[in-house]
Simulated assay, not measured.
Amino acid sequence: MIPEVLRDAVVADDVLSLRPDYRALLLVVEDISPGPGDDASEALLLRAESTAIALTAGAPVEELPHVAAWRDAYRAFGAKPQRTRSSLEALTRRAAAGLPRVNRTTDVYNALSVIHQVPLGGEDLDRYAGAPRLVRASGDELFDTTAGGEEVVEHPCPGEVVWRDDVGVTCRRWSWRQGRRTRLGEGTTRALFVLDALAPMSDDALTAAADELVAHLGPRARSQRRVLGAAG
């Protein structure tokens, strides 16, 4: 049976009108093998760092095809991509100097985001409320984050594209920054992953990224998925 978090997920029409080529692959994974980083996640991070160096040897990060597509998407809802970068662009830029080491699951999805050149976020399902919706914000939604080392609650800008659940915003500016409430920890065993795709990324490439993610989440990991947007 398809879980409610997938069944009731929505991408709003006014988001799709910005980029009709947009697809979101939502992936629910249970029985993840959690914990701190290990040899396998470290190897994946090193592979991602090498991938980023190779990709940017002949072109600046902003000219990589999927990065460039996301910069255009950000401009479509009023964000300035030179100041607010998609998670894909931010990680690819950082990779040459070394990606962050957080915990096993986060390290895996950050590494695969760079390797497959796709924005990829993860949410702890035990902290999630209801189904995910990608919408344009009214501006009064709650977003819990940190600023200057302190926990704070912010609000998105009106019209900003955000992922949200029943409680508030879980990721601002499409794929820019995830909130504190639903972030993955060392003990997370159930997660919702969101893979965001625009042309020129193909459906096959999007599926391959999701398949490799599941393969790295532990021998008992079980998954279900749904694609929203142009492909479904």
Score class of each variant (00 low, 15 high):
102 V>D: 07
162 V>K: 00
28 V>R: 04
155 H>K: 11
97 A>C: 00
60 P>L: 11
72 D>S: 09
147 A>C: 09
121 G>K: 00
113 S>T: 11
34 P>D: 07
162 V>D: 12
153 V>P: 01
44 L>G: 03
53 I>Y: 05
89 E>R: 14
118 V>S: 12
155 H>V: 04
98 G>M: 06
145 T>A: 13
60 P>H: 04
141 E>T: 05
127 R>W: 09
59 A>V: 14
138 S>M: 10
62 E>G: 12
126 D>K: 10
107 D>E: 10
51 T>K: 13
51 T>S: 13
73 A>W: 08
123 E>W: 10
51 T>A: 14
95 A>W: 08
59 A>C: 12
65 P>N: 11
105 T>C: 10
67 V>M: 09
107 D>K: 03
89 E>Q: 13
99 L>N: 09
98 G>L: 05
68 A>G: 08
31 D>M: 01
74 Y>S: 08
111 A>W: 02
96 A>M: 09
99 L>M: 08
149 G>K: 13
46 L>E: 14
143 F>Q: 06
104 R>Y: 03
88 L>A: 05
80 K>N: 15
76 A>S: 15
92 T>Q: 06
144 D>K: 01
102 V>N: 06
125 L>F: 09
157 C>A: 14
115 I>L: 13
151 E>G: 03
157 C>S: 14
91 L>I: 00
106 T>E: 07
142 L>K: 08
76 A>I: 05
100 P>T: 06
57 A>C: 09
121 G>M: 13
78 G>K: 02
44 L>T: 01
93 R>N: 10
91 L>A: 12
142 L>M: 11
50 S>C: 11
51 T>R: 10
82 Q>M: 11
161 V>Y: 01
30 E>D: 15
62 E>W: 14
28 V>I: 00
100 P>R: 11
112 L>A: 03
121 G>V: 12
131 A>Q: 08
107 D>L: 07
146 T>Y: 14
37 G>K: 07
131 A>L: 10
98 G>R: 03
86 S>T: 14
62 E>I: 11
136 R>H: 06
132 P>E: 12
143 F>I: 08
85 R>P: 00
60 P>V: 06
76 A>W: 06
86 S>K: 02
49 E>H: 01
45 L>K: 12
153 V>C: 10
149 G>F: 10
69 A>H: 00
149 G>S: 13
141 E>M: 03
76 A>M: 09
116 H>V: 03
68 A>S: 14
99 L>T: 04
134 L>P: 06
100 P>S: 10
159 G>V: 09
117 Q>M: 09
61 V>N: 07
126 D>G: 04
154 E>Q: 10
98 G>S: 02
125 L>N: 13
105 T>E: 03
75 R>A: 12
151 E>N: 11
103 N>R: 07
90 A>S: 05
71 R>C: 05
38 D>Q: 03
114 V>E: 00
109 Y>C: 04
159 G>M: 07
73 A>L: 15
162 V>S: 03
